[in-house]
Structures are given as C-alpha cells and as structure tokens.
C-alpha cells in the first residue's frame, strides 16, 4: 500500500477521475443528470444521444443548457438536419434566443458544416441529427469542437448502436421514454464509470393531465 501511495505522490500513476475533474462542465439544467455526468455536459467535445424514435425527449434534455441565461449573447447555436420542422415558439418558450439559432437542412453538407461551425470560436453548440458516423468522422467532430471550445450533440436512433460498438464520444447517453418518465442511461463518460441510469420527469406538465 505504501508503495502505491509513493507512486501516486510521484505522479507515476493517477486516478481516472482526476482527468474528469479538470474538464470544465456546463450544467444540463437537471440536477440529477449533472450529478450522473460529474458536473454536467463537457464544455467541449462530442455528446452522443441515442433514442428510440424521434420525440423521446432528446431536445428537452439538451435545450435547457442552451438558453439565453447560459449562452453568451454573441455565441451561435446550429441545428443541422432536424428530422421535423421545429416550432420556434416552443424554442423561444424554452429560453433560446432565436437570433442565436441557425437551422441548416442540407444532408449532403451536414458533416462539413458541423465541423466548420464547431471549430469557430463563436459557436456554442451544434445539434446534429445524423445516422451512422464512422470513427474518423467522430474524431474529426471531436477535434473541431475542442478547437472551437464548443459542444456537438449528435442525435441519432439508438438502433445504430448495433453498428457502432465503440463510441468516440466524450459522453454517450441512451434515452428511452417510459411515460411519465424519461429513462437516461449513461453508457459512456470519459474519465468515470459508465452505467448510471436515472429517471427524469421532463413531460411532467403533460403527464399531470393523464386521466
């Protein structure tokens, strides 16, 4: 035991969680999720959200961290290839500044645009709806986000997980809607133990009307 302590003191070995502590975090807006993610979303990097069909609470989980209170006025948020038309009234209601929000619907240039936007210093986050991404593509997005100190939320159907065994993402979450709860499983988190599951009540207002 003494020899291990000596090695730790001489910095020859280190705890994995030390790496996590030094990374700046942004609150998710959900205290329980912040706790599961060791402080919140990473300030920069790739965050993978796998869900079972659109409308599984993926935006309700992401948008609270992108409100006017949390994002500086000059920063930009990109939504690339959303699967449906977005309701700007709801985006505004959730606290997003519509002047900071840019929508792009060009699937053939989606990855290029995401990379360009992420690496720009004025980009806060990119929400990318995209199917399978190979390791190289994930790596490029991750590097771009680190360069621009921005976050990339990659939203996709969790059926893709069968294709992609090892994720390059800093954080990977699996979402499953079980009304009235949203089940969130942390399947990967850099520098910490994955496997945490939690329940969030994101549609509690609607669920309250349940007969």
């Amino acid at each position: 035991m003494n020899s291990i302590n000596n090695l730790i003191k001489s910095s020859k070995i280190w705890y994995a969680r030390q790496h996590q502590i030094h990374q700046p975090k942004r609150t998710t807006g959900f205290a329980r999720l912040d706790h599961a993610l060791m402080g919140g979303w990473p300030q920069s990097g790739l965050i993978e959200l796998g869900y079972e069909g659109s409308g599984s609470g993926e935006l309700a989980l992401v948008l609270p961290s992108l409100t006017q209170q949390t994002v500086a006025a000059e920063k930009m948020i990109f939504m690339v290839n959303p699967p449906f038309l977005l309701n700007p009234w709801q985006l505004n209601e959730q606290g997003l500044n519509l002047n900071q929000l840019y929508i792009c619907n060009e699937p053939e240039h989606a990855l290029w645009l995401t990379e360009q936007a992420l690496s720009h210093a004025l980009c806060e986050a990119v929400l990318l709806w995209h199917g399978h991404l190979n390791r190289q593509q994930c790596r490029r997005l991750k590097l771009a986000s680190e360069k621009g100190n921005s976050r990339c939320f990659w939203l996709h159907d969790s059926q893709l997980d069968a294709k992609q065994k090892n994720s390059e993402a800093n954080v990977k979450l699996k979402l499953k809607l079980a009304p009235p709860h949203l089940l969130v499983t942390v399947t990967k988190i850099t520098g910490a133990m994955a496997g945490t599951s939690l329940q969030l009540d994101i549609f509690e207002q609607l669920a309250g009307h349940r007969r």
């Binding site: 700007p88 519509l98 002047n99 929000l101 240039h109």
Partner: peptide
C-alpha cells in the same frame, strides 16, 4: 467570415422570426 465560408456550400442556412 464563418458564414462566407458556410454559404459557399450550403444555401439553406436560416433563422426563425416570430
């Protein structure tokens, strides 16, 4: 500068107005 670059490829970058 960013949008000069983006719009050289992507023509459909827009914002919402209520």
């Amino acid at each position: 500068t960013l949008f000069a670059r983006l719009s050289s490829r992507c023509r459909q970058i827009s914002k919402y107005a209520l």
